[in-house]
Every structure is written in structure tokens, then in C-alpha cells.
Simulated assay, not measured.
Amino acid sequence: MTDSAVMLKAGISFHERGNLDQANACYQSALEADPECADAWYLCGRLAMDAGLLEDAEPLLLRSIELAPKIANYPLALGTLRAQLGQSEAAKACYENALALNPSLHQAYLGLARLEFGEGRYDEARALVVPLLSLPDAEREQAEALVGECTFATDSLAQLLGWWATASGVPFDSGKVLHVGCGPQTLASFPELASAGQWAELRLDIDPSVRPDLIGTMTDMSAVESGAVKLVYSSHNIEHLQDHEVPLALAEFFRVLMPGGVAIVRVPDIQAVCEMVAQDRLYDTAYISPAGPIAPIDMLFGLRRAIEKGNYYMRHTTGFTATTLAWRLKEAGFRFAFVRRLPGFELSAVAFRASSEGEGAVTQ
């Protein structure tokens, strides 16, 4: 084994363990031993990407392609980099180049599908990854997640639950729903869910005046047995928690769901709210709700009218963007977590618990 190969092997070991400085030192030593080593240039580029140094990664990957133009993984990595830089057409060309070199390179199909998805071409994205659903590995998991996201973006909740019933083997035409933080509402307030199956509703709230079936908090739902419900529905609740309590609440959502269960979570879209605030419109009416006009200040800190009357449960103490809500749900253990930005300053998330112990959360 050459000196360059020895240093590359050591560098890869450090890289896989997240020790980027040591990995970089090894890769640089490999290049000193053999400046024409395409793998070393490639690995330096991947390391720069992992370190968030996207602009630095591009010339390194280009050099690897120059030295070894027939290796498909090199344009694949360059395509991933250009996609991260928002260069969709250049990324597409790289993925197509990678597939011309290796037509069975599944990650290139996934990359192309993500580009199609990002541009709203959901049918095209789905067509690219459906053939990957027969694979037995993590690439199948990523393909399944993308098919689910396409369904979430284009179809009804009933169709999304139908997709999950097929993927998980758990039927979703009936079952028990835990309505968390229900207030005075029932599932009739969410007709898309109410009409998606025959549901037995169990209402839980901290406020006894709304006459819930169970009195309790989102962070301690010990009155509900583990795995007791098929669906959890929470509309505009977790923003009332302290930020450090959010993982506790989502862990409780996860716990009470049966394997293959689904959580539906809705919260204010704090990114959209802040766009109004950035326009100096903190007190302007954003929309009209059943409770009256709602301004950005109400979505940031809680409904002023209710708080003024002493209902301190209405205070908001944390917030979410689409990215952070998906991250929180996956952190809680959900296999998939899809989030959509809705009109009216709202995020709608649907998160899916794996149907068996061997299925973990998927990086999407």
C-alpha cells in the first residue's frame, strides 16, 4: 500500500468519526505524497462540504473530476454541492453525468428527484424514486420519504394516510385519536381529519373548564397508556411551552402512539410572522380568526385579549419554522416528518412513527 493510500485510509477513519481536522491533515499528507491522487482531491472536497465550506469544496471536486473523469461518485458529489448552493441546472447536469457513468447510482436519482421536488414538479420527482422502493437499504428509506412528501404536497390527508397505510402495513380508516390541548373544540373543527376515517376522539386539556375527557399537560400525559392511540392531533399547542419542554411534549406524543401511528401538529409559522414584523407591522391585522383580528404580536407572544382577561394558558413562549419543527419531530424519534407552510401564518406537520422497532428516523 502506497504512502498516499495509507494516509487516505487513516483520513477516512477520522472523517467517519467526525474528526475533521485530523482527517484533513491525513488528506493533505496524501496529496503531498501523490498530488495526482483523484481520491484525495475528492475526499478534501467532501470534507469541505461537511465543514460547511461550500465555496471551497467546488475547486477540489472539479480537480478530482479532471484527474479521473470516469468515476461517477465525483460528479455525484459535485451535483450535491451545487444543489446546496442553489444551482439547480448545474446540479442536474452533474447528476446526469454521474448516471451516464453509472446508471445504477441510486443517489443520483434521489438528487434529481429532490431538484424536481424543490421546483414543484412532484409527479416527476415521484417517478424518479418509485423504482428505488424495491431496494433493501437506506436509499429505499430516502425514496419512501420523498414519495410521502410528494403525496403530502399534492394530495388530501386521507390520501397521505393511505400512502402511510401501504408503507407501514397499518390501516388508517379507523382508530382512536388523542386530541391534545383540545380547548372547547372537537375533531369537527378539523374536517379534513374527521372525514378521513371513523375516529374515536379522546380529548385532553390542562383547563378543566373546557370539559376534556382527560385533564393533563402535554409534557406529562401519563393518564394515556403507551401505544394506546393511532393518531395524535395537536393544533396550536406546543408554542405555549417553554422551549426546553418541547422535546418532552413530542416524546409524549411519540409514546402514546401505537407503532405506525401518526402525529398531526399545527403551529404558527414564525418565519411568516417575522416577515411582517420586519416590515414594521407588529400590530397590523394579519388575518381574522373566530376570536377576532390577529396581529403578529399575538402570534409571537399569545392572544392579547385572552391574556388580558387572565387566561395565561394563551401565552406563547417558543416558536417554529418549517425546518425547526421537522427537526424537533425527527429528534423525538419519528421515522418521517413532513411540514408544509400554509396560508394564514400556519405550519402543518404530519409525523409518522415507525411500524417496527428496526425502523429508525430517516434523514430527509
Rank of each mutant, 00 (worst) to 15 (best):
C26N: 09
Q28F: 06
Q28D: 13
Q28K: 12
S29R: 13
S29G: 14
A30S: 11
L31F: 07
E32D: 13
E32P: 01
A33N: 03
A33Y: 01
A33E: 11
A33P: 02
D34H: 05
P35G: 07
E36D: 15
E36K: 06
C37R: 07
C37Y: 05
C37G: 00
C37A: 09
A38T: 00
A38I: 06
A40I: 04
A40K: 02
W41K: 01
W41T: 02
W41Q: 01
Y42D: 06
Y42Q: 00
Y42W: 05
L43I: 00
L43F: 04
C44T: 08
G45L: 00
G45C: 02
L47M: 02
L47F: 05
A48C: 03
A48H: 00
D50P: 01
L53T: 00
L54H: 02
E55V: 04
A57K: 03
E58V: 03
L60N: 01
L60I: 00
L61S: 00
L61A: 04
L62C: 08
L62I: 02
S64E: 05
S64R: 00
S64W: 04
I65N: 03
I65P: 01
E66M: 07
E66I: 00
A68R: 02
A68S: 12
A68F: 04
A68V: 03
P69L: 08
K70P: 00
K70M: 09
I71C: 06
A72K: 05
A72Q: 09
N73I: 11
N73L: 09
Y74K: 03
A77S: 15
A77P: 03
A77K: 02
A77Y: 07
G79T: 10
T80V: 10
R82T: 08
R82I: 07
A83R: 14
Q84S: 15
Q84L: 15
Q84F: 08
G86N: 13
G86V: 11
Q87G: 09
S88A: 15
S88W: 10
S88Y: 09
E89H: 11
E89V: 12
A90G: 07
K92I: 15
K92S: 13
A93I: 08
C94Q: 13
Y95I: 10
Y95W: 10
E96S: 11
E96M: 13
N97Q: 15
N97M: 09
A98Q: 07
L99C: 07
A100W: 04
L101S: 05
L101W: 06
N102A: 14
N102G: 05
N102Q: 15
S104T: 14
H106N: 12
Q107Y: 06
L110G: 02
G111K: 03
L112W: 06
A113C: 07
A113V: 08
A113D: 07
R114I: 05
R114C: 05
R114F: 08
E116F: 05
F117C: 06
F117S: 10
G118T: 08
E119S: 14
E119T: 14
E119H: 14
R121F: 08
R121H: 12
Y122G: 08
Y122A: 10
Y122D: 11
D123N: 11
D123C: 09
E124D: 15
E124M: 12
R126Q: 15
L128E: 11
L128I: 13
V129C: 10
V129Y: 09
V130E: 15
P131C: 13
L132F: 12
L133Y: 12
S134L: 11
S134M: 09
L135G: 11
D137M: 11
A138G: 09
R140C: 15
E141G: 09
E141K: 13
